[in-house]
Each structure stands twice: as structure tokens, then as C-alpha cells.
Amino acid sequence: MRNSKTIPFFIVLSLILIQCKKEHNVINLLSAPDNWRKETITFPLSFAKSLEHKGTEYVRFAPGWGKQGSEEFFSYAFLWYLDNDPQLSSNRLESELEMYFDGLMQVVSNSDEDSAEAIPKAKAFFEKVDDHSYAGKVITYDAFTTKKEVHLNIVATYNYCENTNKHLVLFKISPQPIDHIIWDKLNKVNPNIDCI
């Protein structure tokens, strides 16, 4: 009897260790401190299928991302590592990020049927800073934590990587103003890729 209880415990423990190893070995092209959680998602994105990109999204979340009241709340970066030229413009960024956040918040809210129907549409505003960067804001619903509207400041930068023949669009996001210390941390999150 004692052995029958011991064997399942070791099986469960082995499965947990294998899963942790798999998660640890997932390559994420964004360099960030080890305590920044990471995700990798392949296009088409399940929550925003109308974004017609081909490639991968790499995400890094500040440790306080999901903690209301934290100075790092909703602060994160994501990289679109694309096969296709995204042909960025202020209008295109506005349109695509509205689709992105509308889809994301709708998927998260579907688990909460009371709020799913009341989600306001995202509004995005961007201005071109130079040939490679844009600054803007997205006003969206926070379906994850507060269940309220959140104003996200966003900096988007574009680069073409000749070494890999990929198009890189890096988004850095926080509700904190640009002069807040979290932006010093976000500005250190960058693609770990050799590009000419």
C-alpha cells in the first residue's frame, strides 16, 4: 500500500520537473532580467487573427505586471519578429493595436461572462518620432486585473535584420509616464539578435 502512494507522487513530481525544464528552455529573443516572465506566441495570434503577419511574438513582463498598485503594473515589452514587412505608419499602428487589445481583452473576459459584453473598444493614438520609431497611447480595458480602463503609453521601434531576413517591431508599454523609472528598465529590454 505504501508503494502505491509513493509511485504516483514520483510520477507527478517528474511531470512537473519536465514541464519546468521545457518552459526554461523556450527561446525568447528579448533579453530581460531573469525575473521578467516570458511568453512566445506564433502568428496568427489566436486572439487577433485579423493581424495578417507571419512570424512570432516574444513577450517579457515586468515582475509587477499583474499587481495593481505596483509601479511595474501593466509594464511589459513585446517583439514582433516577422517574415513580412509590417509597413508601419501611425494609422497602421493605431488600427493594429486596437485589434490586438480588443481581441486580447475579449478572450480574457470570456471567462467572466458578466464583463464580456461591457468591454469598451480600444482607442490608439500614435505619432511618428523618426524613420524607425513611433510614440503613442492605447486606451483599453484591463480584463486581467482591475476590470477598468487603462491608459498605456507605448513606444514602438522598427528595424530590418539583414542577417535573418526578418522585420522587427519592438513595443515597450507602461501606464507610467515616460519619465518614470520603469522606462529605464523597459529601455534595457531589447532583441538578443545580431543584425547588420
Rank of each mutant, 00 (worst) to 15 (best):
W36V: 03
D130W: 02
F125N: 08
S90T: 04
H180A: 12
D112Y: 12
Y76T: 02
Y141L: 01
A156K: 02
F74N: 08
G69H: 08
E162N: 08
P175E: 06
H151I: 10
W36N: 07
E52V: 07
T56Q: 07
K185L: 01
F47L: 10
D102P: 05
C20Y: 13
S95V: 01
E149L: 05
E113N: 10
P177D: 11
T157A: 08
P120V: 05
Y76A: 01
N91W: 09
L93D: 06
F43D: 09
S109L: 07
I7W: 02
A156G: 04
E39P: 01
G66R: 05
H180G: 08
I182R: 14
V169D: 06
F74M: 09
D83S: 12
E117P: 00
P33D: 04
A32D: 00
F74T: 00
E113M: 13
S89R: 03
L17S: 15
D34C: 06
I41E: 11
N3F: 13
P86R: 08
V26C: 04
I196A: 07
Y58F: 15
H24F: 12
T145N: 08
I193Q: 02
G66Q: 03
L97F: 10
P63D: 10
N190H: 02
H53K: 10
V155I: 14
K49C: 00
Y58S: 10
V129C: 07
P8N: 02
I178V: 12
L168D: 04
Y76H: 11
D130G: 03
